[in-house]
């Protein structure tokens, strides 16, 4: 079963797939040719090994490509798999309803939660409606409105981050894109209810952080989190966005889950199935669900008032600086 879309670094896999196909589809295969079975088994083993080898050694740029894989599971795919009794809530009560951010009540394990997440869209129409996961101010405001409800009803908040960035457009600017994101960051820091965030694909800058000021932050193994896209970065600093420069920028930006964990920006890396989340969405969903349930078991035991101060300290500590002499703070 070949995956229809193949990234260029998966080329060896495509070749094995083709060889397997040829063997299995050989008209003579139906006849008694028992000697073919070992060859097929051998190829399948090679396929597994190659897949593992490729995905264990992804470069940062390749990671970005996997994070954007067209078959990668999206927020709604995880809702279907993880959340019971999902009730979607629409609208920001001010301007409209942005499909690029989905919000709603639902149950995860035994916990009633509020879910918030970027949604990129599956088919072409949905993708266009969602602006490929680039939210408008009304999306961020919808998210904040519902998160305030969650605080009011003592529901933990779980956010799924998957956006190339907030939408750069005329209407977005006119309606205060920057203000919407800023207010979300400010107000999320004060919510007296547990907040979890999981970067499931693209963690694109302020557009990602606008729903990710959380008590605990996790990243899927092949997701990325960065201040700017590698293309944007290479266009500015390398003067030209081409595959070579993009790859260098991706490395320099330290955008992988491992790097972000090293800097304390994320707390946990959630392992993906061999070959990426798109090869086994069910298994990925189970891993995410387990992490959420574990964290909520801990966080819901704490006094809600104790959460904002801890959350403050978490973000307060990020970004080490050098302090050669004692600062004048008198």
């Amino acid at each position: 079963m070949a995956i229809p879309y193949t990234l260029e670094f998966e080329k060896p896999l495509a070749e094995i797939d083709a060889a397997l196909d040829a063997l299995e589809r050989d008209p003579a295969a139906g006849e008694a040719t028992p000697d073919r079975a070992p060859a097929i088994a051998e190829l399948k083993k090679t396929q597994r090994d190659t897949l593992k080898k490729i995905y264990n050694n992804l470069t940062p740029w390749e990671t970005v490509r996997v994070a954007r894989h067209p078959d990668r599971p999206l927020f709604r795919d995880y809702i279907r798999r993880i959340v019971k009794d999902f009730v979607e809530l629409h609208g920001d009560r001010r301007f409209g309803d942005d499909p690029a951010i989905v919000t709603g009540f639902g149950r995860i394990g035994s916990h009633k939660c509020l879910l918030v997440g970027h949604h990129k869209g599956k088919d072409t129409n949905e993708k266009l409606a969602c602006h490929f996961g680039c939210a408008h101010p009304e999306g961020y405001r919808k998210a904040m409105l519902k998160m305030r409800l969650a605080e009011k009803y003592s529901l933990p908040i779980v956010t799924f981050v998957d956006t190339p960035g907030a939408y750069p457009g005329l209407g977005a600017e006119q309606r205060g894109q920057a203000e919407a994101i800023a207010v979300n960051m400010r107000d999320m820091s004060t919510l007296k209810t547990p907040i979890l965030s999981i970067v499931i694909g693209e963690g694109g800058s302020g557009g990602a952080l606008g729903i990710a000021v959380a008590d605990r932050v996790a990243m899927l193994e092949h997701a990325y989190y960065s201040v700017i896209s590698p293309e944007g970065c290479s266009a500015i600093l390398w003067k030209e966005a081409n595959p070579k420069n993009n790859a260098e920028a991706a490395t320099a930006l330290c955008l992988t889950a491992k790097d972000n964990k090293r800097f304390g920006i994320v707390d946990t890396i959630i392992k993906e199935p061999v070959g990426g989340a798109h090869r086994d969405p069910d298994k990925t969903a189970t891993s995410i669900e387990r992490w959420i349930v574990d964290q909520l078991a801990e966080l819901t035991r704490l006094k809600p008032e104790s959460l904002p101060p801890k959350r403050y300290e978490r973000f307060r500590a990020l970004g080490k600086v050098g302090e050669p002499r004692r600062s004048s703070t008198s």
């Binding site: 004060t190 800058s205 302020g206 201040v227 700017i228 970004g319």
Partner: peptide
Amino acid sequence: GARMQESTLSLMQMAKTSAALARFDQ
């Protein structure tokens, strides 16, 4: 804007300053 050369660490300064302003506001 955010300084690219510090990637997500500079990004996090947005959350850090905003959270500090929440306390100032309160």
